[in-house]
Simulated assay, not measured.
Amino acid sequence: MIDESDVLTHVLDPLRLNGMFLSQWEVSSPWAIQGKPEPCALIHYMVSGSATISMPDQEPVTLAEGDLAMFPRGDTHIVGDSPRTPPRPLEDVLPTRSTGKFSLIHLDGGGEPGRMLCAGLHYEADGVLPLYHLLPSLLVVEAEQISKEPLLAHMLDGLKREIREHHEGRNLVLLRGFELVYLLGLRVALRDPSALGRVASVLRNPGIGHALTAIYENYDYPWTLESLAQSAGMSRSAFAQTFKQLIGEAPARHLMCRRLAEAKRLLSVTTLSQEAIAKKIGYESTVGMHLAFRSLYGTTPGAFRKKHQAKLRRNG
């Protein structure tokens, strides 16, 4: 079964963060902002003061000074001084949020002041495994928890200084810094079984856990439905039905997604030939990988590599 203490590795390993926008909010009550769903992970760090987060069909959550809120899938929410304050649309206050941009926002209601850092971390949605989508829409790490995590606490303190001091390479430092804050914050939040949401159901099922471990750690093996069912200690039909019910897709597709997520990584960071990559991820031929890659991502491995290299040249 998947080691619950290392669930973060399995959930986040294929996640490729590739850009960030950052804003600092200087606010005073009354204030409230409503954002639309965004294809990125969102972070709110309450530097001073307090705020309330409201989401559809959920009780409001209060952020105290020093608390960290994370939205793994960028779900819609309202953040403000009180759930009763009418919100303004985010696009009215911050119409453009291009990657790498830092914005300073003032919302002066004349009351109690506060300061909040907000980051949006972009990732390639088609490279994310379904387990990531099973995470709760909101995870909060309280200041007291952060104080017991030296690396997370030091990262947040360092990022606050980096924002103020404008050193060379600031944008890259902020991207990598908030990327690490996000991973460290999730690690802390996911130690609480009640915070795992639907992921907990997967982890509590020993058979499906064994099969997922096989898929994630040995994706290059020529797995079949029968051999995966055997690894789970289940019949083929029971395994296929339970897997789809808990994960949201068939075992074969889940295995394909895991293999192709690794293919994208190898195409991006290595000069390995497509033939070598196909063998590394468990395909018998480049044709098989080519067809699967195009089916899932809408492009070929070669075209993806060229586009990625062109993007690196533009940004480099």
Rank of each mutant, 00 (worst) to 15 (best):
V27N: 09
R259C: 00
G282C: 14
G248E: 01
D67G: 12
R115Q: 06
T62C: 07
C257M: 13
Q241Y: 15
A32P: 07
S268L: 07
P113G: 05
R73W: 03
G169I: 02
Y216E: 10
H308C: 02
F293Y: 03
E217K: 00
V269D: 10
L15V: 02
I163N: 10
A143V: 04
V287F: 13
R161D: 12
L121G: 03
F243H: 15
H210T: 10
R294L: 09
S98T: 14
K148N: 02
P39W: 05
S28R: 09
L42R: 08
G207M: 12
L203D: 11
P89S: 05
E165V: 07
G158M: 11
D67F: 03
R259Q: 07
D192A: 13
F178Q: 12
L107R: 08
P39N: 02
S231F: 14
T270E: 11
R97N: 00
L272V: 01
I247E: 05
S103K: 01
N171I: 06
R16L: 06
P60L: 01
S295N: 06
M20A: 13
T85C: 04
S295P: 04
M55I: 10
A278M: 06
L186D: 10
D13K: 05
G114A: 03
G233V: 09
L272D: 01
K148Q: 05
D126G: 02
S268T: 14
E168R: 15
N315Q: 15
T76W: 11
G177F: 04
H44K: 13
H166C: 02
L184T: 13
I281D: 10
P60W: 03
E217N: 02
A64G: 10
D13V: 06
R115D: 02
R97I: 02
A252R: 04
L196R: 10
M20L: 11
L175N: 10
R164F: 05
S82C: 01
Y182V: 03
G233T: 07
P37W: 05
P136S: 07
S54Q: 14
R258V: 01
K306R: 11
K160R: 13
A119M: 08
T224P: 03
S227Y: 07
Q274W: 05
T300I: 13
S147P: 00
L17I: 15
L186T: 04
V199P: 04
Y123W: 04
L131F: 02
R198E: 12
H122W: 06
D126M: 04
L139K: 14
